[in-house]
Design a protein around this nucleic acid. Structure first.
Lengths: 222, 222
DNA sequence: GTCTATAGTGCGATAGAC
DNA sequence: GTCTATCGCACTATAGAC
């Protein structure tokens, strides 16, 4: 999880976008990118990306308009950079956390926990990606939709494998995967609700796992 | 469900907002309100409410800027009118569809179906309310949050009553209600996904009911 | 590499003719 | 009741000083 610090992510973003970022010193660029993304997520998640003017971003981040424009060439490009990075991290982390050698039940638990912990650590990023998806270009929006479906397929494949092996009882893997995804997304979309009720990510993970398992498990043994 | 036609809703809106709507002839006002709300939901659900300019709304609806401003006094007021109405309808329909005389299991099924059918018929409205909530004023946003919680409480009370009567087995009513709500919201938030997969609202309702019941029912009898 | 100043655009909102 | 014309403003984006 240390992998997921804002700074490491911003270093990735810097290296992948070096061609369009005017600043050449990595240390400077990364420091400012951390600031820019952090501030953008903060303002946008309160009032929306479109509502946030670059003057707002400039004022809150302490960077001038001119400085901001050395990191992106338009407000839309800033949106794209954030979205791209969020997508990549999801797929990378989720794929890594599912071990095909494990039993389907263990894989299912691992995937649920990985999804929740990832979105817990990166909550502002995921909330932003979800809420601002419709502001993307057609091409970018297509990628966002694909991403949603790929994540869901990870769950669907685990369920199907479990059903084939006779270890799980799933009568509708696609819909089961869909509602699991819905429960997982609720964690980062309604954070205010869960933190108000003092539900920890561990408690939520345990609950969702228990809930799902009482549907898909054939018996009560471990 | 015929109650929920766009026209009837707009007539309600007209009557409730007669003090601020300049147009006095009901027939004219209702016709234009239907147009305005329909067009606003259409554009906003594709590109966001902030992104939609009133010039866009004017062009697509065929009404001039001047005409639009006889129905609301600011863009924010338009947003509020839509949100208010969506909220009221939810509470009205949901409260009406739960009969306290029924057994908890029947109430649970009824509430799930009512929620899904309501959001099916009014999908653009619900999607809009969800996605644009953060553009609201502090006071309006508070109402939106309350609404979310009230809907959830309807489910929580059914579950608690079921547990008390020994008819259902629910070890965590608040979290169970929360994930039920998450599954129900997925239906209107990810419509594109379900319609692409040709899942009907009946099929989804049956699935969610089956899913939830296999967690909360004590045995397999009806 | 960062700043200030400003060009140019498109917005929300309104006044007044019809 | 609806329109066109227009005001004033805030925005994105850039040019050029430092």
């Amino acid at each position: 999880m240390a992998l997921l610090s804002m700074e490491e992510i911003c270093r990735d973003i810097f290296r992948e976008n070096q061609h369009r970022i005017k600043i050449k010193k990595e240390a400077v660029a990364v420091r400012n990118l951390v600031n820019i993304f952090h501030t953008t997520l903060k303002i946008s998640n309160e009032r929306g990306f479109q509502t946030m003017s670059l003057r707002d971003l400039s004022r809150v981040s302490g960077l001038s308009m001119g400085a901001l424009y050395s990191y992106f060439s338009s407000k839309d490009e800033l949106l794209e950079m954030i979205q791209n990075q969020g997508r990549r991290i999801t797929l990378k982390v989720l794929a890594r956390c599912v071990d095909p050698g494990d039993t389907p039940l263990i894989q299912l638990r691992g995937a649920i926990r990985a999804h929740l912990y990832l979105t817990e650590v990166m909550q502002p990023w995921f909330y932003f990606s979800y809420m601002e998806a419709k502001n993307l270009s057609r091409e970018q929006r297509k990628k966002a939709i694909e991403n949603e479906l790929v994540t869901e397929e990870i769950f669907m494949r685990i369920l199907e494998e479990g059903a084939q092996k006779g270890e799980l009882e799933v009568d509708n893997p696609p819909l089961t995967a869909a509602v699991i995804k819905a429960m997982l997304q609720d964690w980062y979309l309604k954070r205010w609700k869960y933190s108000r009720r003092e539900v920890s990510v561990q408690a939520y993970a345990d609950f969702v796992i228990g809930f799902v398992e009482s549907v898909v498990r054939k018996n009560s043994s471990n």
